[in-house]
Design a binder for these strands. Structure first.
Lengths: 333, 333
DNA sequence: TCAAGGAGCTAATACGTATTAGTCCTGCTC
DNA sequence: GAGCAGGACTAATACGTATTAGCTCCTTGA
């Protein structure tokens, strides 16, 4: 119904108001640098109102090469089926800040598919003024191309790839991890284990660096399929271990596994063993990853890059330490 | 760095390959209806490859008035701060189907703000090929304008407004509710209460219609601020009520309130009182709302509208009944 | 030798807006 | 009445691609 009726354009307004399309553009665009009689201005406005004129965003974008559209490239589903989505707060922060800055978001689909589809999606990225990338993965080819072309993009999470040319907003895991370890040392712990992912991601390596910086004698255990069992925990106790630090993973799986193992071994935290998580679920001893704030800051940085404001293109946010109930002084021997 | 370098266009390829821009467009667009020598085709492709050409999505969109971009207008945050988001499955379904059909999504921000921002966002909607609307609210002015202009849009949830001209994918609450009531009647229940929202939304009214169609004698209780308390429940029992049906709300609040009241009154389900929810959390007696499927179908319908395939523009999906543990035969008197 | 037909390509234009370099007035000054 | 200033507006063009009508050659056949 009414299918033939197409939305009015500036040319339509111009014809009716008896002016040129350029005049309409000037008036409606609020371009004050071109002088225009008040009467004309009024007339154009009225006609526009009558016709229900709405600027065509695509044409606007093409003409002024700015669309107030930010891309969001997730390398996974943005609305995962899984209810508990650790990264959700990041997206929430992104949306909030985008709304505040008057930017809409484009969700690229197919980013979790096979390589070819992924690369195609990366190309479509250019539809936006700039793009947020959100994930551990850096497909160097296409991303490098974007960076080379000066296309504004921001990664969420520290990204040392491409010779450090990738702008990002990350979390300062090194400092935060070191703080957690220092606190354990201050409490008197000497024999400590650090359980980390078998993963080369910067987020994993930064934590390890922080741990070893503060407490070089810490034993590092790499998770790789082998679960932490009650036996593992008993072994630690036998070795005189009084504190365990776990890398905070996406899902908090490792943390839960260790807790379970401790319980199964008939031990309790923090009496028998102090337990801290480097970036875990809220309320657990260790530190918190400021996800929401990362989302917000990433949007701000991206908009700065788009508008060519000079900002530090690589930012690390502080992770607030959390004093939970799982950490205490070591049991006196 | 490399800020001056702008991405290559078809014109650049044309110059280098010694052909016209039109030729480049024909070759790269895979337009088989224009004859082209294989050698030329090759040459153009190679140059495009060398330059790392990527079509400018905005220009493409302007030229062929199709962008493979679907709008998503939520009237609220798409990534709400609140962890438990009942509507999440809908968005999840939308994303899944969009990916399958090769469509990207635009998230319009400011849709939950004050009226003016909301209307501005509705206008921006036109940037996409079509738009999904997701919420009980229908701002008649701007939406009516879109519909009149033949802009493809689909609401999620039945929308009788604008004289029934709004395309939608909803859930068949009438039939599903009637089924639940019929089942209660079959079990022998005669005195029944229906607790519903004090809300004129179609989703509320459809349920009531279904309830009364199957069991006209059902007493209807409208929630409005007044909570259901233990006293309320005792009153029901005193009146000989053996079953209560609750409207499934966004958060399942009403359901939980009733359950709590029943417990506080020292009663149990289904022994003292059968309890069913019309579209509640999974596993609870009553029926389930096929959220995910609604999301998927809405996307499919929208794409059909965009591509001008003829499809029923208003669809109601079946809600699968759920036999939970909260419903049983009435206590024999 | 000319017409017909087809292969291979391109000039021109459309899409809808923003911007810039003007043009054409009117009124004023000396 | 020539010259100038400035006010009000617009023609032309840009943005980057898609489409279409039509042009130029070349081949074929009579």
């Amino acid at each position: 119904m009414a299918a033939g009726r197409r939305p009015p354009r500036q040319a339509d307004i111009a014809r009716i108001a008896g002016v040129s399309q350029a005049t309409v553009s000037v008036v409606l665009g609020g371009n004050r640098s071109v002088r225009m009689a008040e009467s004309t201005r009024q007339r154009v406005m009225e006609v526009a109102q009558d016709l229900g004129y709405v600027p065509h965003p695509v044409a606007t974008r093409l003409a002024r090469s700015r669309s107030n559209l930010l891309g969001l490239y997730t390398f996974r589903s943005a609305f995962p089926t899984d209810e508990a989505d650790t990264y959700h707060p990041i997206l929430s922060g992104v949306e909030e800040e985008a709304a505040k800055l008057g930017q809409d978001l484009i969700l690229f689909t197919g980013t979790s598919g096979p390589g070819a589809r992924q690369e195609a999606a990366i190309r479509r990225t250019r539809l936006a003024d700039g793009c947020l990338f959100f994930g551990r993965h850096v497909p160097e080819g296409p991303v490098s191309r974007l960076v080379d072309d000066g296309f504004p993009l921001v990664y969420i999470g520290r990204r040392p790839e491409l010779g450090g040319r990738i702008p990002y907003v990350g979390a300062d895991y090194v400092t935060a991890s070191a703080l957690v370890l220092r606190r354990l040392l201050d409490l008197g712990h000497r024999e400590i284990r650090y359980v980390r992912e078998a993963d080369e991601a910067p987020s994993s390596e930064d934590r390890q660096r922080g741990v070893l910086r503060a407490a070089p004698r810490t034993g590092v255990v790499r998770l790789q399929g082998t679960e932490i069992t009650a036996t593992t925990v008993r072994g630690w106790i036998a070795d005189g271990v009084t504190a365990v630090v776990v890398e905070g993973t996406d899902t908090g799986t490792a943390y839960r596994a260790v807790r379970r193992a401790v319980e199964t071994a008939g031990l309790s935290t923090p009496d028998d063993l102090s337990l801290a998580v480097l970036g875990g679920p809220p309320g657990v001893s260790g530190f918190e990853v400021p996800m929401r704030e990362m989302g917000r800051r990433a949007v701000r940085l991206l908009v700065d890059l788009v508008t060519e404001k000079t900002t530090a293109p690589q930012q690390l946010l502080r992770c607030p330490p959390v004093d939970g109930a799982q950490v205490g002084p070591p049991r006196s021997r």
